[in-house]
Amino acid sequence: MLAEHFEQIEAIGLNLFFAAIFLLIGLAIQDVLKKGDVPKFGRAVVWLVLFFGCAGFIAKGVIQFIMESGSGVNG
């Protein structure tokens, strides 16, 4: 059973790894912003950029899933 689903388990593990990396990056950025006494506008810009990075990663995953499943517009 494990060999049959190895590719799916690998994909899930990789996505969880990337989610953990984004979480750790967010915690590191939060720590730097607090210690650096950054103004609210600067904090908003930093979090907006981090959000767009995460949103792009999620969009890439969704698009890749749609393309690989074959249920696209022409599928």
Rank of each mutant, 00 (worst) to 15 (best):
F17D: 12
A19S: 13
V45C: 02
F22E: 07
L33G: 00
V45W: 09
I25H: 04
L50R: 02
A11T: 08
I9L: 07
P39Q: 07
K35H: 10
A55L: 11
S69K: 12
Q8N: 07
A20T: 07
E10I: 06
S71L: 14
G75S: 12
A44G: 08
R43S: 04
D37Y: 03
F22I: 01
L2Q: 15
G72E: 05
I29P: 04
W47F: 15
G13N: 09
E10R: 15
L24F: 06
A55R: 11
A3K: 04
A3V: 08
V49Y: 08
I21V: 14
P39F: 00
K34C: 03
I12A: 03
L27D: 01
C54W: 12
K35V: 01
E7Y: 11
I25F: 12
G26M: 08
L2A: 03
G36Y: 10
L23T: 07
P39R: 08
G13M: 09
V62Y: 15
E4V: 06
W47G: 00
F6K: 13
A3Y: 06
L23C: 09
L14D: 05
G13I: 04
G53K: 00
L27N: 01
V32W: 01
D31A: 14
L24Y: 05
I9H: 08
L14A: 09
I29L: 13
G72K: 10
L27W: 11
E68C: 07
F57R: 08
E68V: 07
G53L: 09
M1D: 14
G56M: 14
I21K: 04
P39C: 06
R43I: 02
P39M: 01
Q8R: 06
M67D: 14
F52T: 14
I9R: 11
E7K: 14
I12G: 02
D37V: 01
A11S: 09
A55D: 15
F65C: 12
I12W: 12
V46R: 05
G13A: 07
G42Q: 03
V45R: 07
A59I: 12
G42V: 03
L16G: 07
I25D: 10
V49S: 05
F52H: 15
G36M: 12
G53T: 03
F41G: 01
G61T: 04
L48G: 12
G42W: 04
V45D: 06
F51D: 02
L16P: 00
L16T: 12
L27F: 10
A55N: 09
M67A: 06
G26P: 04
G61H: 12
R43G: 00
A55H: 05
F52Y: 15
G70V: 02
V38P: 00
A44W: 13
A20C: 03
I66V: 15
E4G: 01
A11H: 11
Q30L: 12
G36F: 05
G53R: 08
F65S: 07
L50S: 02
G26H: 06
A11K: 11
E68T: 15
A59V: 12
F17S: 14
V46E: 01
V73F: 11
E10W: 14
